[in-house]
Nucleic acid binder design. Structure first.
Lengths: 278, 278
DNA sequence: TTGCTCCTCACGTCACGTGAGGTGGC
DNA sequence: TTGCTCCTCACGTCACGTGAGGTGGC
């Protein structure tokens, strides 16, 4: 009584294809064949196959099993390495499960960095995009402050107006809105210390972080919004001279526009977004 | 300021090859190119890439990320499935780690089923092979009894003699050795109830299990050892008639051998190994 | 003839990694 | 000319799975 490939595979709790795969890798000797070419497995093949499947089930790569060979003298080294890898994997998966639990609990968008779950639904898509980018250029203390800020600061009607602000909003609207936003921006600067000096919290370099953030803001906000952010920043930091310079630049621009029907808005060099503000 | 492929990849914490891979799968749009063909990535690409890497880091397959698309409306279903998979994986890996801990603690051969660690080093290679095969045809209660037996029953000089018994051991030796082994075999039959009726503990069928075990024994032991096992079985169960039949068969064989110089040993139909005895 | 089991290639899966071979600006 | 960065194929990895196409005994 010898076994067919299927019988052997079922006895060992594996598949025909796996058995053939082990033959191809020379892990398992090929048995004698019957006259029609069918393989006839013996007990020795079963024992070897059980060794292979057991070690493979433990997570050893087949290449390792091959080098260990039948001589099972000192598996300790390989098994210690394996155990360390398993430990790392388990830790990673459990961290991920923790993040998933928060995401599912708060029905938050999955792409946000961990920890934003609780208030993520109040954020706009733009907010979330900015947060994703911040998380790549700022360190953890900044991200924690932003998280706190999102949790602490309620959305105001001014925030809604800012988000909906059209690119051609008139100057009076831009002035009014920035004045409405400035107090909250000033408060935030005081309340979240890491946001005051983000250059100290930019692991890949301050200029790199600033450049990236500026790119992001310019891409995510329109001209009017960028001006409002800039104005808000100047108002909240009491930079009256810069504010005056802005106004006179705009005066000039409007004069030119009257003549040529053309609009220009200078981009702020060190801008800040509205609620999310490093 | 647009980003090169390398810059984009580093900003997102991934590799150039991964970015190109996402292009090939249409997960990530290709950006404009410079005159020399170099790609120029914008903020929109960075945001999308961060979405992809984040979801991929959570363990979502890229195909899923593709179908979810940018519309991140209800990720719950996919994430719940993912979480369940992660839970199963973590459980499996932790079970494996538990087994590895036992194996490493007792410096036991890794291929044995879990639980044999403590006394595995006292087992011969043949014992281990048999245990591996038993674990495939008998249920857990049998394996636990075998485990107990290995732990409880100390090795005797008779066991050593049995293991070393040559195929042409003379009849007197076979008789003496089986008599020496029989008491322990009888005791084991009483002490480990599941071993008395293995047919009730053969999930894949009693005949299948018996056939497999007989094959294994015939392959792992020589003729003299098989006869000793058979004798021990008959002695320990008090089957005196069968014993007498065996002796007379052997008388005949020896008479023929005297005439033709030829030896035959009948294979026991319901044999038992020495210490490991279902 | 049909159904079933066995066989041997060859190619596919998954998320990229590894070269090979070529270009463009300093 | 050398070194560096970018580009596009094509093939490799890992442990098999999925057919495709053919055989042999009932």
């Amino acid at each position: 009584m010898a076994w067919s490939t299927r019988e052997l595979a079922e006895l060992a709790g594996t598949t025909i294809k796996a058995v053939r795969h082990y033959h191809k890798l020379n892990l398992l000797d090929e048995p004698e064949r019957m006259s029609n070419g069918y393989k006839q497995y013996e007990v020795s093949h079963l024992i070897r196959l059980l060794q292979i499947t057991r070690l493979s089930d433990l997570g050893l790569p087949l290449a390792q099993i091959a080098t260990m060979g039948h001589a099972d003298k000192d598996p300790d080294a390989a098994l210690l390495v394996l155990d360390a890898e398993l430990e790392a994997t388990v830790n990673r998966l459990q961290r991920i499960r923790g993040e998933l639990a928060l995401i599912l609990k708060h029905r938050a968008p999955a792409e946000l960095p961990p920890g934003f779950g609780e208030h993520a639904r109040e954020l706009t898509e733009t907010d979330r995009s900015l947060i994703m980018i911040y998380s790549r250029v700022f360190d953890d203390s900044v991200m924690q402050d932003i998280q706190q800020m999102v949790a602490d600061e309620p959305r105001t009607p001014a925030d809604d107006e800012f988000d909906a602000l059209p690119a051609d909003a008139d100057r009076a609207t831009r002035q009014r809105l920035s004045a409405a936003l400035a107090p909250a921006m000033a408060r935030a600067q005081g309340a979240y210390p890491s946001l005051q000096d983000t250059s100290a919290h930019s692991p890949k370099g301050s200029a790199y972080a600033q450049g990236t953030v500026v790119e992001a803001l310019r891409s995510l906000y329109n001209k009017a919004q960028l001006e409002v952010l800039y104005r808000g920043h100047l108002l909240s930091t009491g930079a009256e001279e810069a504010l005056a310079a802005l106004e006179s630049t705009l005066d000039e621009d409007e004069a030119k526009a009257d003549a040529k029907n053309k609009t220009v808005a200078g981009a702020p060099t060190n801008s800040s977004s509205d609620r999310i503000t490093p």
